[in-house]
Amino acid sequence: MRWCVSVGAVLVAGAIVGGDVASIAAPSPKSGIADARDSALSVNVELVIAVDVSYSMDMDELAIQREGYAQAIVSKDFLQALTARPASKVALTYFEWSMSGDERIIIPWRVIDGPESADAVAAEIMKMPIRRGSSTSISGAINFAVRLFEENPYRGSRRVIDISGDGPNNDGDPVTGARDAAVEKGIIINGLPIMVKEPSFATTDIENLDLYYEDCVIGGPGAFIMTIKDREKFQEAIRTKLVLEVAGLTPKGRIVPTAGNEPRVSCLVGEDKWRERGRR
């Protein structure tokens, strides 16, 4: 099942609420990955944060998004969620993406196990210069995240990709193929569709980005989206989403159709709009 929720409608359980770029290219495969994971450090969850920096994101959105993740990681809610699970550790990596092949790791794999390690990660996120990319390849981001899991030296009971974005896939492979391949590996993909601006004819933005994320992007047991339609709710949404992911919860909300059903929005809408733009 997959779920969706809007910020302001989320109720989190009481136990939960109460530099340089490290890498540009995708990591290369290594031998002995399975053996390494057998002896890996145990954590509650392996979390990949995949952050959209495509050109449709304005500089204000990019700054708010970056600050939102940094503040979420050091928040009391996040640290309380961390201790609510037996392992009390989260293995986390954070990268920014735009077109296929433009994925840059900001935070390599790190373990967060308390305030000190959370502060260090948040400070490192904030010190990196803000950048903008070009087109939008959600499929490229998902594929890159999967490769990060394969080289991850930690082992968690869950593997989660937390992916944000303000538009549909318009570059690289179709998004549904990347999603399905990740889900087949036992990976959960949650989404943060950003809908704070009116769609423009000059871009490939769409009106129903939340439905697109529900039907074309997210997947896996308990996968959910959290829609942002108000800039003022940006940081609150990111914090709540990370708390739910670390705690292994899904928000209260309505059930949405599974990936096997007919999408309510074409999963190739971004590619179609990109081609139409090229013909003008």
Score class of each variant (00 low, 15 high):
M1R: 10
W3Q: 08
V5R: 03
V7W: 01
G8Q: 06
A13N: 02
G14D: 08
V17C: 11
G18N: 11
V21G: 09
S28G: 10
S28Q: 09
K30P: 07
S31Q: 05
I33R: 14
R37F: 02
D38H: 04
D38W: 02
L41F: 10
V43S: 11
S54E: 05
S54F: 11
S56Y: 08
D60F: 07
D60Q: 11
Q65E: 12
Y69Q: 02
Q71L: 09
Q71K: 11
Q71S: 09
I73H: 05
I73E: 04
V74T: 15
S75L: 10
K76Q: 14
K76V: 13
K76M: 12
F78N: 02
Q80R: 13
A81F: 00
A87D: 12
S88W: 05
K89V: 04
A91E: 01
Y94D: 04
F95V: 08
M99R: 14
S100M: 05
G101D: 08
D102Q: 15
E103P: 03
I105V: 15
I106L: 10
I112N: 01
G114V: 09
P115M: 03
A118P: 14
D119G: 13
A123E: 07
I125G: 02
I125C: 07
K127L: 09
R131E: 10
R131K: 12
R131T: 14
S135E: 15
T136N: 08
G140P: 02
I142D: 01
L148P: 05
L148C: 10
E151C: 06
P153R: 14
R159L: 02
R159C: 06
S164T: 15
D166R: 10
G167P: 02
N170P: 06
D171F: 03
D173G: 03
P174I: 09
P174Q: 06
A178M: 08
R179Y: 13
A181H: 08
A182S: 01
G186I: 12
I187G: 06
L192I: 15
I194T: 02
M195F: 06
E198L: 09
A202S: 15
T204D: 08
T204L: 06
I206G: 14
E207D: 14
E207N: 13
N208Q: 15
N208T: 13
N208C: 07
L209T: 11
D210F: 03
E214N: 14
V217H: 00
V217T: 03
I218D: 00
G219A: 01
P221V: 07
P221I: 00
I225F: 00
K229R: 15
D230V: 02
D230A: 05
D230I: 01
R231W: 00
K233F: 06
F234Q: 05
F234P: 04
Q235S: 11
T240F: 05
V243H: 00
V246F: 01
A247N: 07
P251G: 04
K252Q: 07
I255S: 07
P257S: 11
G260C: 14
G260E: 15
C267F: 04
L268N: 12
L268W: 03
V269T: 14
G270Y: 10
D272V: 12
D272G: 08
K273V: 04
R275E: 15
E276M: 13
G278V: 03
R280I: 03
